[in-house]
Lab assay of single mutants.
Amino acid sequence: EPLWIRPDAPSRCTWQLGRPASESPHHHTAPAKSPKILPDILKKIGDTPMVRINKIGKKFGLKCELLAKCEFFNAGGSVKDRISLRMIEDAERDGTLKPGDTIIEPTSGNTGIGLALAAAVRGYRCIIVMPEKMSSEKVDVLRALGAEIVRTPTNARFDSPESHVGVAWRLKNEIPNSHILDQYRNASNPLAHYDTTADEILQQCDGKLDMLVASVGTGGTITGIARKLKEKCPGCRIIGVDPEGSILAEPEELNQTEQTTYEVEGIGYDFIPTVLDRTVVDKWFKSNDEEAFTFARMLIAQEGLLCGGSAGSTVAVAVKAAQELQEGQRCVVILPDSVRNYMTKFLSDRWMLQKGFLKEEDLTEKKPWWWHLRVQELGLSAPLTVLPTITCGHTIEILREKGFDQAPVVDEAGVILGMVTLGNMLSSLLAGKVQPSDQVGKVIYKQFKQIRLTDTLGRLSHILEMDHFALVVHEQIQYHSTGKSSQRQMVFGVVTAIDLLNFVAAQERDQK
């Protein structure tokens, strides 16, 4: 057995438009009618409502009807409940999964919650491996369901041993009777949507819809739904939504950006999952974080739909894509998950301010006199920076000697690579993860907040409520011999709460 199987392995699926269902090699399930009293909570997966979006479509000038398939009504709160249950049931049916076995899954959280929910009911041990950027709410729900959680670096490539995929496979090879159901490759993922989600949409719309818009992560949702719609409703256009920084969209030119990270969760990847059939997507749109969270908040405030950030991405694209539809036509959007997962993220004004998705003037509360002053007023001194090749031991000596707790790590040209902190280095040394002679590049981390000289002290204040420091950066445009230009970030300084307090105190003292 291989040590790991690539999540982007070539698909062996034989589905073709027009091929009889009787030739399918898979076990198919028909939607079942729910009894009045459910035998367990797993029976509350599927049969989610279709809700008309009344205000947002009109606000953006849509002539067509805009409908939302509300997947956050599933038992675990997301569309991923469907595939989690289906993968477990299919693994039980073919004898792969037996009582007492362990389920391991690399996930952005929602599939993990679905699997942990099913594992709690069915009696399996469950280990979820997820990147650090995923919300604390997801972690809390997983723990409450009895799952064990392993976190991995957000910026690790999918084929790196440190990625959530790599760590999951390492655990599988170490733990007896453990299984990775593997949402990236498992046919049960798109089949769950082909058999149930798509049929529900067709039934709820009486077979009449002209466009379907869905955000894409593993691709199982859009693949399964689109294949069924292509068979039953061939005139329906399928629109895929991919965040900026991901590479799922086609044509490839759409993916060209210097951005590699994004805040919206559960969609987009740096590889093409095996289950994603991009041939059934008629057109791709890219979405960005700001519009995703703005539209998610709009869905909550104006439509009462308590959905997550990827739902915002989907609707932001839908109001663009559906401009081509006329009166009497219908566009369906998939709202994948609930706001429950993001209470401390985009639902929080403070978080939105820190990330730059909300401006101070958007909030009406009274601010102190210094709130709208610029960061450049602080008069920061030149920063202490270190090269990635310097040793951890030497870096600790320098920081202690100069009285700093942290320093930016830059390359020879001064471009920011990340940050090192005294606390992080000492804990890594004590844990045996690094040696004093190791290069400081081994303990770089990139989960820090950046701020510009033109940003306000109010925004800085919000950042420092949650973080010990902020890195002050400025952009530099560099022209190359080819005539092309590129933008790079340079370090201007490091600012802490002490710097802000000293500035405010000094100004008030001078005024007296």
Rank of each mutant, 00 (worst) to 15 (best):
T482W: 07
G414S: 13
V440K: 04
K433C: 13
R330W: 01
L254F: 05
S381A: 15
K367D: 01
G441S: 09
L426R: 10
T391K: 04
L378P: 12
H480S: 09
I416E: 03
A321K: 01
T421F: 01
T385C: 01
F346T: 04
D349G: 06
E360A: 14
C307D: 04
D270R: 04
S348N: 12
D362Y: 14
Q478Y: 15
V332G: 05
T257R: 05
Y479M: 14
F469V: 08
E508M: 01
T257S: 12
F271I: 01
F357E: 04
W369Y: 04
G414M: 01
G432S: 08
I416M: 14
H462Q: 12
R297Q: 08
T421N: 01
R278A: 05
S427G: 13
I300T: 07
V434D: 14
P336L: 06
L306M: 10
L335Q: 12
H462P: 06
P383C: 07
G414C: 10
P243S: 08
L335W: 01
V494W: 01
G304F: 01
E253F: 08
V434W: 05
L429F: 11
Q435F: 12
F492R: 11
K449T: 01
I390A: 06
T496Q: 11
Y479V: 11
Q478T: 11
F346M: 10
G309R: 01
R278Y: 06
S437E: 13
V410I: 14
D411I: 10
I239K: 06
H462Y: 12
N341I: 01
K402H: 11
G268D: 01
L306A: 07
R400S: 06
L471P: 14
L358F: 10
K512G: 15
Q439T: 14
F492I: 13
T294I: 12
V495F: 13
S348T: 15
F448R: 07
R278N: 06
A413G: 11
Q439D: 01
V473S: 12
G266Y: 01
L464Y: 06
S461D: 05
L335E: 01
T496S: 12
Q406F: 05
E265F: 03
S481M: 14
A321V: 13
T456H: 09
I498H: 01
A382V: 12
N255L: 08
K286S: 03
P408L: 04
M419G: 09
F448W: 14
S427P: 12
P436N: 01
V317F: 05
Q406L: 05
A431C: 01
F492L: 11
V281Y: 07
V504P: 01
M352L: 10
E412G: 10
L305F: 07
S485W: 13
D282G: 14
P336D: 15
C392F: 11
L422E: 10
T314S: 13
R278L: 05
T389I: 14
L500P: 12
A382Q: 13
E252I: 06
D270W: 01
S313V: 11
A413C: 11
T421P: 13
D362S: 01
R374D: 01
E412Y: 09
P388F: 05
Q354S: 14
Q507W: 13
S461C: 14
E265L: 04
F469E: 13
R509Y: 08
I238V: 14
G309I: 06
G304M: 03
K449E: 11
D277G: 09
Q354G: 04
K366I: 14
P408G: 08
S481E: 14
E244K: 10
P436W: 09
G458L: 05
K345R: 08
S287I: 11
M343W: 01
H480R: 09
D337S: 06
E290L: 14
T257V: 10
D405L: 03
